[in-house]
Structure formats: C-alpha cells, structure tokens
C-alpha cells in the first residue's frame, strides 16, 4: 500500500513567478520561504509522488469542453504560459498510480476526464516550480477540478473526489510515498472589476476553519457567497477541500498568510496534520 506522507495547502498565483519582486520584501519572502519549507519537508520525508490539485483558468479547456474533474495519466509538461517566466519542462510522472486513481475512481462513481498528454497551466506549474522541481525523484500527478467556469464543481463533490483518490491510494499495491497539494485561493478577483482587492477577513475565516479541521463548514460556504465576498479565485478553496478529503481527519497548521495586493491575492499556506 502506498503511504501518504504529507499534505499542504498553498497558492498558485501566477504573479509569484512573473512579478516576484512586486510586493514588499517581507511578504514576498514569507511566500517563497513557505514554498521552500514544503520542498524541504518533502525531501526529508522521502516523498516520491505528489498529487497536485489545481484548476484550469478557462485556457487549457475551452467552451467546447469543460471537464468537471480531470487527471493527467500520461505525459505532463508545463507551464503553458510563456509569460510566467518559468521555462517549460517535462514533468516526472507516476503513470501507474495515476491510472489506478482513474480506474479506481470509475468503479467508485467518479467519471474522470483524463489527459494522455497535457501542458499544465500555472495552477499546477507554480507549485511544481517552487516545491517539486528541484527534487530529482519526485513525480507529479496533476488533478484539475473545475473551479473557474460556472457551473463549477460542487464543494461536496470535490470532497467525494478526494475521498475516492484516498481509497485508490490505500488500495494501490505499490510502496509510493505520496504528498498532496491543494492549491489556489484564497480571496482574489481574476479579471473582475474588483481585481486587486483582498478580503483578509474571508481568508482568515477559511484558514481558521481549516485549522479546526472543519471541512463541513468550509463546504457550507456557498458559491454565491464566495463570489460576492472573496472573488472568483476564492472558489479554488474547492481544491483545498479535495486535498483535505484525501488526507482524511486532519487539521491545518498555518505556515504563512499574506494579503498581497501586488499579487492581487490572499496567499495562504498550511500543512495538513492528523487531527
């Protein structure tokens, strides 16, 4: 059976690599240091596979096809965006485990869309760049949930997908040491009239609920409320909910939080630890 050796919540803000020095140095360093700490922790725990849960930004997938949930089971490279300032590279992948998560999910009621060759966007590529890429043995399995195009995935469904991934990991005969990243959020308005605002109170509420391990309360925050008070980007807390569901009964230990106007985002980091 594969072993889950850690879970983390983190932003995937594309302005972190593309406008790294825009915020005050203390805020910038808090974010970069949190990524570095995750990277170091994965090395210390000898992680060999990371499942990165992100969401497309209506770029990889278009009006012709919006998958509700998608898993990369084959070739992975990224990032798609040249303007990120991150060179596009092939990712190390764990195709056998990815395929097992998919087929196990089919039997489990999760109708995965799947990608046999995908160029991931910043949602996967930013966490990979800062917390994975320097580790020569760490393989990536990308998972996309639709948090960006209405109707978005239901939060309870995001949880169910995470629970299915957990059952797949538990039933896998390999000896992988698996880490899980829930990425995105917290408050930000992408492309909206309010872009640049950060709702720190909302962000701290989300982090507080994660600290309490209160996933039910996180799922109870309705999409309409999120859109109104924290912006379309805050719908990405569904990625966090999915990650928490993979880990099981966990509480978040906050690593960093910075409301960064220059990066138009409330950037929160946490480690998920057994409750």
């Amino acid at each position: 059976m594969a072993t889950i050796i850690g879970g983390f919540l983190m932003p995937h803000d594309p302005l972190i690599p593309s406008m790294t020095d825009a915020p005050p140095p203390a805020q910038r360093d808090a974010v970069l240091n949190a990524f570095a700490a995750i990277n170091q922790t994965l090395k210390e725990r000898d992680a060999d596979t990371v499942i990165i849960i992100g969401d497309d930004h209506y770029a990889l997938f278009g009006p012709h096809c919006i998958p509700r949930c998608l898993i990369g089971i084959g070739d992975v490279e990224g990032p798609a965006e040249e303007w990120l300032g991150i060179a596009r590279v092939p990712f190390l992948t764990n195709e056998p485990l990815a395929r097992h998560i998919m087929t196990s999910g089919f039997a489990d009621g999760v109708d995965w869309a799947f990608a046999k060759a995908i160029t991931v966007d910043h949602a996967i590529a930013v966490p990979h760049h800062y917390a994975v890429k320097s580790n020569p043995k760490l393989r990536t399995i990308p998972v996309y949930l639709n948090c960006g195009v209405l109707p978005v995935v239901d939060s309870r469904r995001a949880q169910a997908i995470g629970q299915s991934i957990r059952r797949a990991i538990d039933s896998w005969p390999g000896d992988e040491r698996v880490a899980v990243f829930g990425t995105g959020g917290i408050s930000h308005w992408v492309g909206a009239a309010q872009m640049g605002q950060v709702n720190e109170a909302f962000d701290r509420r989300v982090l507080g609920l994660a600290e309490q391990g209160d996933v039910e309360a996180l799922m109870a925050i309705g999409d309409a409320e999120i859109l109104e008070t924290a912006g379309n980007g805050a719908l990405e807390i569904k990625n966090w909910i999915c990650a928490m569901a993979i880990l099981g009964d966990v509480r978040a230990e906050i690593m960093a939080y910075e409301p960064i106007r220059e990066w138009i985002c409330g950037c929160g980091f946490a480690e998920l630890k057994a409750a």
Binding site: Y58, G148, W189, V190, G191, A193, N232
Partner: peptide
C-alpha cells in the same frame, strides 16, 4: 461583455 456574463478569466486573457 462582463455585464453580459462573459467569464472574466476569458475577458482578461
């Protein structure tokens, strides 16, 4: 276009 409910991710891109 936003007032006609076009997705703001698409509008900005």
């Amino acid at each position: 276009m936003a007032r006609r409910d076009a997705n703001t991710l698409l509008l900005m891109a």
